[in-house]
Amino acid sequence: MEMLASLLPIILMFVLLYFILIRPQQKRQKQVREMQAELKKGDSVVTIGGFHGEIHAMDEDTIVIQAGDGSKLTYDRSAIREVKQQ
């Protein structure tokens, strides 16, 4: 019984850390995966490097983004940070 009482603060600390740090990070990662899965041609996007453009073409793993001057760059789907609202 004494051993359980001495382990209780450590167990509570791990539970608290899970709800403060780990769970919110997992939720954010899930939201990012869903956003990247829902991308479609014509969406205005921003990459993790800060490049702004519009999706010109895409396949399973890569996305071709067209800039305002007409140039096209190919990125991995995972490089998309956000979809801008039009």
Rank of each mutant, 00 (worst) to 15 (best):
M1H: 08
M1K: 07
M1L: 10
E2D: 08
M3H: 12
M3F: 14
L4Q: 01
L4R: 02
L7F: 14
L8Y: 11
L8I: 11
L8K: 14
L12T: 11
L12M: 15
M13H: 14
M13K: 15
F14S: 13
F14R: 13
V15N: 09
L16V: 10
L17R: 08
Y18C: 07
I20E: 05
L21E: 01
L21N: 00
I22R: 03
R23H: 10
Q25V: 07
Q26S: 09
K27S: 08
K30F: 01
Q31W: 07
Q31N: 12
Q31K: 13
V32E: 06
V32G: 03
R33L: 09
M35K: 02
Q36V: 00
Q36C: 01
A37P: 01
E38V: 03
L39Y: 03
K40W: 01
K40P: 00
K41Y: 06
K41I: 10
G42D: 07
D43M: 13
S44D: 07
S44Q: 12
V45P: 00
T47Q: 04
G50P: 05
G50N: 08
G50Y: 12
F51P: 04
H52L: 08
H52N: 05
G53P: 00
E54W: 03
E54I: 06
H56L: 05
H56P: 00
A57E: 08
M58N: 02
D59V: 05
E60Q: 09
D61S: 12
D61W: 03
T62I: 11
T62F: 13
I65P: 00
I65N: 02
A67V: 08
A67T: 10
A67F: 06
G68L: 12
G70W: 03
S71Y: 06
T74A: 08
T74W: 05
T74R: 07
Y75R: 02
Y75Q: 00
R77T: 01
A79N: 06
R81D: 12
R81Y: 05
R81S: 13
V83T: 04
K84S: 13
K84L: 15
K84N: 14
Q85M: 08
Q85A: 10
Q85S: 13
